[in-house]
Design a protein around this nucleic acid. Structure first.
Lengths: 193, 193
DNA sequence: CCTTTGCAAGTTAACGATGACTAACGTACT
DNA sequence: AGTACGTTAGTCATCGTTAACTTGCAAAGG
């Protein structure tokens, strides 16, 4: 279980990454962000690896409920996809750190274990989408000539690209506003003709 | 214009990034990859920034013809999209560096100018796709109830996500084999109903 | 009730690696 | 003679990490 201090460090690290970029995510900077010395961090995390792992877990804990909610609707509908995208984009816009963490594989790529963790997280999200589309196809409102997995990849890919571009542009525009056009396009494409 | 030595350095840098990851892309490593001292690199590039910029340019020079070819077909067709994806994925598979460079924004994110360059590169590719879909819509074979821009984002996003996952998995599977399913799905979705 | 013990959590001050980059110098070819 | 291109040997900053010491508080023992 996480201690209060660990949580504080994780949140400081996320905030730091959001504002300064992932290159600034150093033990030194995290420490000074919460006003303690560098060595103090090591009282709470054995190594930077452990801190990064905890950050991944924490982000996943915030993100995954959204995917679960999408799936848990009694009656699967395109309406659910619409609100899902709107909520997700709002979340991403207000937590810039997500976009930096989840969309910058390189950071975690140095460490093979972290890379695996990130892949697991990603595949988890993706498989939620797959399940959603499977249910939607069964319900008859979604076209069935394309595999659910492909629909999920297309959806997730569109999300990621939109966020990446938004981020590269310096996060100046509104990300939330871009959810609706994408949702509408996907729904138009996926709806049974 | 690039000298022979500069080209050699760029290619060494790309190869290094492909095999060892972008974190290993240091002046030291690039230097020793071509068997010269660290300081020698600075005879050919003023700074690491300049080297990175040259790498971006070089990658773009290889990549952009593929997008141009897609666009330059006399008669735009889904067949062209199919071969474009197949060729692109083969290229990416055999030049792992692309996937690392073009899909890891963070590397270039430290430097505002490089970030801008990367965005330009990306928007350039994307707008080629947009033009392609515009022509395709005009030709009547592509559905017209969705904007060309949206189709381009969906296409490009699907490509990127597939490559990202492939890369996170350690590039073990065949990327080329994944082009056809995606192309088929997109074509089925985009074809006029 | 006071004292002692022990531990959690902080400090300062380093260590060794490694990063980008540079100054001074050598050499070979035009 | 000069220039293009290489070298060695550094500078300086910053990284993750650790050792040694200090402090505050809570439980245990007499």
């Amino acid at each position: 279980m996480l201690t209060q201090r660990q949580l504080e460090l994780i949140e400081a690290a996320i905030k730091l990454t959001a504002t300064e970029g992932i290159q600034k995510l150093t033990i030194r900077n995290v420490a000074s962000a919460i006003g303690v010395s560098e060595a103090a961090v090591y009282r709470h995390f054995e190594s930077k690896h452990e801190l990064l792992k905890a950050i991944l877990d924490h982000l996943n804990a915030i993100l995954s409920p959204h995917f679960t909610t999408l799936l848990n609707n009694e009656v699967p509908s395109f309406e659910a996809l619409h609100t899902f995208l709107a909520e997700l984009f709002t979340l991403l816009e207000h937590n810039t750190a997500f976009t930096l963490m989840l969309f910058a594989e390189e950071t975690f790529n140095v460490d093979p274990q972290l890379r695996g963790d990130l892949l697991t997280l990603m595949e988890g999200n993706l498989s939620h989408l797959v399940l959603f589309f499977q249910k939607l196809i069964e319900s008859g409102s979604c076209r069935s000539d394309i595999e659910a997995r492909q629909l999920a990849v297309i959806t997730f890919g569109s999300i990621r690209l939109t966020v990446s571009r938004w981020h590269l542009q310096g996060a100046q525009t509104s990300l939330t506003n871009q959810a609706a056009p994408i949702a509408n396009s996907l729904i138009t494409l996926f709806r049974v003709p």
